[in-house]
Amino acid sequence: MQNLAPTAGTWIAKCFTDQMLLLFLVPSLIGILLVVGYVMVLPDKPLETKPPREGFKAVLRTYWVSPRQHPDFAWAWLSRFLLTLANWIFTTFRLIYLQHEMRLTSAEATETLATGVLMYGFCVMGSAQAAGWLSDHFGRRKPFIAVAAVLFGIGMVILSQADTIGVFYCAELVLGLGFGTYLGVDLALVIDVLPDPENPSKDLGIFNIAMSAPQIFAPALGALLISLGGGHNYSILLITASAVCLCGALAILPVRKVR
Rank of each mutant, 00 (worst) to 15 (best):
M1Q: 05
L4F: 14
L4Y: 09
A5L: 01
T7Q: 03
T7Y: 02
G9L: 05
T10N: 03
I12P: 07
A13S: 11
C15D: 03
F16V: 02
D18L: 07
M20E: 14
L21N: 12
L22G: 11
L23K: 11
V26G: 06
P27Y: 03
L33Y: 11
L33A: 07
L34H: 09
V36L: 08
V36T: 05
V36Y: 11
V36R: 12
Y38G: 06
Y38F: 07
M40P: 11
L42Y: 14
P43N: 04
P46S: 10
T49E: 15
T49N: 11
R53D: 14
R53S: 15
E54S: 13
R61C: 12
Y63N: 11
W64D: 01
S66P: 09
Q69A: 04
H70I: 04
F73Q: 06
F73E: 07
L78G: 08
S79F: 14
R80K: 15
F81H: 03
L83P: 13
L85C: 05
A86V: 08
A86Q: 13
N87S: 11
F93M: 05
L95W: 00
L95C: 02
L95N: 01
Y97L: 04
Q99K: 10
Q99T: 08
Q99H: 05
E101P: 03
M102V: 00
M102K: 06
M102R: 04
R103P: 13
L104D: 02
T105Q: 00
T110I: 10
L113N: 10
V117Q: 03
L118G: 13
L118A: 15
C123G: 14
C123H: 03
A130I: 10
G132H: 05
D136S: 12
D136V: 06
F138N: 15
G139F: 02
R140H: 13
R140N: 04
K142I: 07
I145G: 05
V147K: 02
A148M: 08
V150F: 02
L151W: 01
F152K: 08
F152L: 03
M156T: 10
M156N: 10
V157R: 14
V157W: 10
I158T: 04
L159K: 15
T164A: 02
Y169E: 01
G178P: 03
T181W: 14
V185W: 06
V190W: 12
D192V: 09
V193K: 13
V193G: 12
P195I: 01
P195N: 01
D196Y: 10
P197H: 02
N199V: 14
S201L: 11
K202A: 07
K202G: 13
K202S: 14
D203F: 01
F207P: 11
F207Q: 12
A210H: 01
A210K: 02
M211L: 15
F217K: 03
G222E: 00
L224W: 00
L225D: 10
I226R: 06
S227Q: 05
G229L: 06
G230T: 01
G231Y: 00
Y234E: 00
Y234W: 06
L237Y: 02
L238P: 02
I239H: 09
S242T: 09
C247R: 02
C247Q: 08
L250P: 05
L250Q: 07
